[in-house]
Design a protein around this nucleic acid. Structure first.
Length: 527
RNA sequence: GAGCCGCUAGCUCAGUCGGUAGAGCAUCGGCCUUUUAAGCCGAGGGUCCUGGGUUCGAUCCCCAGGCGGCUCACCA
């Protein structure tokens, strides 16, 4: 039942009235001459001189009888509109049919009001798009914000509303774009070639994670969405592209929380004739360069994390990228914190230690998994200052080359931790095809023993290695987390424009669409 | 996956020691030709998340479920 005071019904009624007056509520074009910012910047020359044309969204309306004030907002900022019946004449009643959020264009002279605000005295007002839904009403006075649009769910689900009313959200995504630009610029400058490899793969690989599965109808085969970029990029090293990178989306069928989204942006680069030490030098320089470019400095303030609604905020210290990043072997860090020499311990003792630290693992995990687990529990939370953790257990790194000094137990690998978070994973790449095959087979044994996350054997990749891959370093950087670091964000959802959310009722494919897709399948089968 | 918290008008929230509800903003009407969280006067607006249970009676108490947020655990 329509309610006379329902905002949507009111807007629909205004739309009808506008059409009735012969006005087009959704015209095709508006010739804008100035942005809001330009009007402020060039006020001296514009004042009472040429006619300007501005366009944007109405963010405030203050009708006072035969005069109305309002603010128009475009991508550059806001400018006040001064609408007078004497100026607009027959067009003035249109003002009554406007709502907050409508997109309008206005032409007129620029002036300063009695209270000093730079404004456009509107001689011509054009509706550019009528809005049918109310937008969040956020008011502001003396820098204080009233009725802020802070509901996290609403902000994530309807990001356009968040972007409309929260300037800091726009800043986050400008900074995200800046981060990606800086990463590209850095790698391009170091003569890495940007490439694109398939997202849909017959065999997934390059990481230990569970994949999303999909199906190709015409070929009638299952495909996986990639969980990493690694294997195709290494094939390019075989092909003679000595420095390659890919900045792309990968998909992991795992948990969703403050640090994880089912799809995320991963940067991987591969560097022939380099090893993990070279890569560490490069990564350290890359982090500083990108941080400087994006934030202007190397000291990165982090926002506090709140414990629940009422709970106390947990302060997070600023991250300083200035001092050299520490480089510490994983086993040495474990020994420092727990006193345990994990390499010398029996499997049973390792398990006992892991349980003591609060992390029981299901099944009978291999030593390497237990060591990694102990590391995650005992060491990681304390790795606040940027730290390269180096030389990991072999079994958890099936694609990394054995350590040149401890080849039986360790690999040449590093992870960069900052603020207790992993940002980079890299290693000296394994390029011995026989050794790679043995590692894959080891993974298969683990899988058969009940390990959930193992690396599948990829014959096509082994074939490429058999063709000869140069010694190389490979690096993976979690771009979303890097953006979090550079923006101080506390949740990955805050740096994704459209983070994954559970579907609401009425969202997703309707039954009719699903039927249509099934029809499509049959058509595919016939061909 | 576990724990805690929340779900009341379009929005943000208050409230009912169990007797079917209220504020501000928004909306609608009136006044107002330099206002700016504009102001003043008036009005309308609610399956109090869903389903069970207890009760004479549930928005409130109990149970189950849904959705969300936060925290912890885990994969980046």
């Amino acid at each position: 039942m329509p309610d006379s005071t329902d905002p949507m019904a009111a807007r629909a009624e205004k739309l009808r009235a506008i059409r009735e007056q012969g006005l087009d509520p959704y015209p095709h074009h508006f010739q804008r001459t100035h942005t809001a910012e330009q009007i402020g910047e060039r006020f001296a020359e514009l004042e009472e001189a040429e006619t300007v044309a501005v366009a944007g969204r109405l963010r405030s309306l203050r009708p006072m009888g035969k005069t109305t004030f309002g603010h128009l907002e475009d991508a550059s900022g806001r400018v006040q509109l001064y609408l007078r019946r004497d100026d607009l004449g027959e067009a003035y009643p249109l003002v009554k049919l406007l709502d907050l959020g409508d997109l309008v264009g206005a032409r007129g002279k620029v002036f300063r009001t009695r209270s000093g605000e730079i404004s456009v005295r509107v001689a011509e007002l054009v509706l550019l798009a009528k809005t049918l839904r109310p937008m969040p009403v956020v008011k502001e006075k003396d820098g204080q914000v009233f009725d802020a649009f802070t509901d996290r769910e609403a902000r994530y689900r309807w990001r356009y509303l968040d972007l409309m009313v929260n300037p800091e959200t726009r800043d986050v995504f400008r900074r995200r774009a800046g981060t990606i630009r800086a990463l590209r610029r850095y790698l391009d400058a170091h003569e890495f070639l940007e490439v694109e490899t398939p997202v849909l793969q017959v065999v997934y690989g390059g990481a230990l994670a569970r994949p999303f599965r999909t199906h190709h109808n015409v070929l009638d085969c299952d495909l996986y969405l990639r969980i990493a970029e690694e294997l195709p990029l290494k094939k390019l090293l075989v092909g003679g592209l000595e420095r390659v990178y890919e900045l792309g989306r990968v998909f992991r069928n795992e948990g969703v929380d403050r640090h994880h989204n089912p799809e995320f942006t991963l940067l991987e680069f591969y560097w022939a004739y380099a090893d993990y030490r070279d890569a560490m030098d490069l990564v350290e320089d890359l982090f500083r360069t990108v941080a400087r470019e994006v934030t202007g400095g190397l000291l990165l303030p982090q926002r506090a994390i709140t414990d629940g609604e009422e709970g106390p905020a947990r302060e997070r210290p600023a991250i300083d990228l200035e001092p050299p990043f520490a480089r510490r072997p994983m086993l040495a860090l474990i020994r420092e914190v727990t006193g345990a020499d994990v390499l010398a311990m029996s499997d049973g003792a390792l398990r006992t230690l892991a349980v003591e630290l609060g992390g029981a693992l299901p099944g009978s995990p291999p030593r390497g998994k237990l060591i990694e687990r102990i590391f995650d529990l005992a060491v990681v939370p304390n790795l606040i200052a940027p730290t390269f953790v180096i030389d990991h257990p072999k079994v958890v790194s099936p694609l990394a080359k054995a350590h040149r000094e401890t080849p039986d137990a360790l690999v040449e690998r590093f992870e960069l931790f900052i603020g207790g978070q992993e940002f980079v994973n890299a290693f000296t790449e394994l390029n011995d095809p026989h050794e790679q095959r043995r590692r894959f087979e080891e993974q298969r044994e683990l899988r058969e023993a009940g390990e959930a996350e193992t690396h599948p054997l990829d014959e096509d990749f082994l074939r490429a290695l058999e063709q000869g891959m140069p010694p190389a370093a490979g690096v993976g950087i979690g771009v979303d987390r890097l953006v979090m670091l550079l923006t101080g964000a506390t949740a990955i959802k805050d740096v994704l424009l459209f983070p994954h959310m559970r579907t609401l009722e009425g969202e997703g494919l309707g039954e009719e669409d699903r039927v249509a897709h099934r029809e499509g399948d049959r058509e595919g089968d016939r061909e």
